[in-house]
Design a protein around this nucleic acid. Structure first.
Lengths: 344, 344
DNA sequence: ACGTTCAGCGCAACCGATTGCGTAAATATA
DNA sequence: TATATTTACGCAATCGGTTGCGCTGAACGT
């Protein structure tokens, strides 16, 4: 009844063709020292017998798997899940598996996950840092063992490896400039944890825009959250609008907080964008659903994932190359009603 | 310079303790035939030497990995990514990896992915079916080889394995009943592909509610989409509202289409919920952002993922048990303004 | 005619853990 | 005291590829 279907191995193929297993192994991957017709014969028989390569065995021998690890904060966030979608697509095209692990934005978790992934002998790693993380020693194990590490979005300069990012400074500058063009005079900024470079750079872009326009940088209008979630966004907006001299615009470092700002405004009869213009960041689905639609900065999430995956795969191909490049993708300012004061 | 740090193996530990590798192997997993003090000694030395078990080697020997495969349509959808979040959390607590693969709702992709996952020797599989899929032979390979398969949400009755679902019929009934209670007289239903049981059952719940209230079932008010995305939702709403006798309520089988219905209504000056009540399904984040907030049915996404993972892990523990259970989780009707005609 | 080159393939040692079977010593039973 | 049983551990095969090195015969050069 219970048929123990033995799997076909290279040994089966070898003995059937009266050659050695090594020849079969090499033939299957077009090794240069194997004859043309032998390669064909092996592949043909392999196909006929339904041979399935055992990656586990190869991984054991090579002490490296064809699995790419992905460390992110939370899967269930639009930007992250889209990025993973891109990673998965690219990796699966290259015959690689993708294994994911969530840090939940905790430093402790991130360390534990790094250890677990390392123990799983992943062949490459893609990381978007946890909000908390300030030290990066837990990644050096990978680098020391020639396991390519690529950072995406939430990166660090403390480690010398590939990065896939957007120009957060330019994006912050662009977004703030737009608000200024729309006639906003007192622009507040709701940022994220400032040790996370993406948030720091967005804030610096914001400040640079003010400077270039000879506008005062008012520290009391620059807030930074811990998680930058909706609760924080709501409370920070409440704080800002309760100031003696409240802002007439808010540039938020993500859409979640920006949407909360809009909701606070709606609850309190503050007209958007006339009384308060709101600019977000990320182009999350909610930015298009909220009323009025939220102006924001688009993040090429899927592409960032694809490119990060490609970088990992590239390093796996050419182990000799040790260059570490930083790839910066273009962002787009998406102008919607939440900031559109001047009708065009 | 380049220190080839040799990994500690059970052989190193064995020779240092002057015992055999088999003893070390057994001691590390508390095998009954190993003495108490031997177990302690082995574990102590393993800790001191920084021994890391090589799962690859174990997988090769046992011909089964500690990796759980997850097949879903798209990662970047709120329900799916939340579910995966739950799976990952539970699996990682049990020391298992999670590898994901997207079908993009395509039958062909699903088959290819199944084959790839099988070749990866996964130790268990969690599936939420692609929209297109109508045949299920591509999963039998797993069952024949005692690899536990658990279906979540988008399930099928054609296969005899575990399922984690919600009561879609009851949910559809409940949702429609609510609309009726709110005084809606002509309720339309926007459903998904009817060969996918979740959508069929929601539609049947809808019809049952009408029947119980002696309301006519008007076929022209029952539409079913292919992907049930926003474009389809918008067009179907347009179609419905252009009928000679348009509906005064729409029950959509997901939030995406429901939000599109609201947007169509807003674009065309149709008051919600007075002129048109809209009910969604899933409790996606957008349902809370859209104005007016969307009434919907909540899906315990994270829990469904956790439970599915637990089922897989359970089957891995006790291989003898071959029961296949269906676990049905509770849904909640979330009433918001989009259906609230009667002020309470 | 003889040394050289090289394409083409085989040998066998890995990679690290698992496990059925065997065995010696210790303890229990008759 | 002899035998049965239990306790605790070792032996060695096995999982399926991979790869450095070595071998062979034929083509080639002078």
């Amino acid at each position: 009844m219970k048929q123990k279907k033995r799997e076909i191995t290279i040994y089966d193929i070898a003995s059937e063709l009266n050659v050695s297993p090594s020849t079969v192994s090499r033939a299957l991957k077009d090794h240069y020292s194997i004859g043309k017709e032998m390669i064909e014969a092996v592949k043909k028989l392999a196909r006929e017998r339904g041979y399935r390569p055992n990656h586990i065995a190869a991984s054991l021998r090579k002490n490296k798997t064809n699995t790419i690890g992905v460390m992110i904060s939370w899967i269930n966030r639009p930007f992250i899940s889209s990025m993973i979608s891109g990673i998965e697509e690219e990796a699966s095209n290259a015959g690689c598996n993708v294994i994911i692990s969530q840090s939940h934005d905790s430093y402790e978790h991130e360390i534990a996950n790094a250890r677990a992934l390392y123990n799983s002998r992943i062949g490459g790693l893609i990381v978007s840092l946890a909000m908390e993380t300030r030290k990066y020693n837990h990644f050096s194990t990978f680098l020391e063992n020639d396991i390519p590490v690529v950072f995406v979005d939430r990166v660090t300069d403390d480690l010398n490896c590939d990065k896939v990012v957007i120009d957060n400074f330019a994006a912050g500058l662009m977004a703030t400039n737009h608000l200024i063009e729309q006639g906003c005079k007192r622009i507040a900024h709701i940022g994220g944890a400032q040790h996370r470079s993406i948030y720091k750079q967005r804030a610096e872009g914001y400040m640079e825009a003010l400077r270039r326009n000879n506008m005062e940088i008012d520290e009391s209008l620059m807030l930074s959250g811990v998680m930058l979630n909706s609760e924080e966004g709501y409370r920070m907006t409440e704080h800002l609008m309760s100031l003696p001299n409240p802002p007439d615009a808010i540039f938020s470092a993500n859409d979640t907080a920006a949407v909360s700002a809009i909701q606070y405004a709606k609850h309190n009869g503050i007209k958007i964008p006339q009384k308060l213009a709101v600019m977000g960041f990320n182009n999350d689905p909610i930015s298009l659903i909220i009323d009025p639609p939220l102006s924001t900065v688009s993040h090429p999430a899927v592409d960032m994932g694809k490119i990060a995956a490609r970088q990992v795969l590239k390093h796996r191909e050419h182990k000799d190359i040790i260059t570490s490049e930083t790839i910066t993708l273009k962002t787009d300012l998406i102008i919607r009603e939440s900031t559109l004061r001047k009708k065009r």
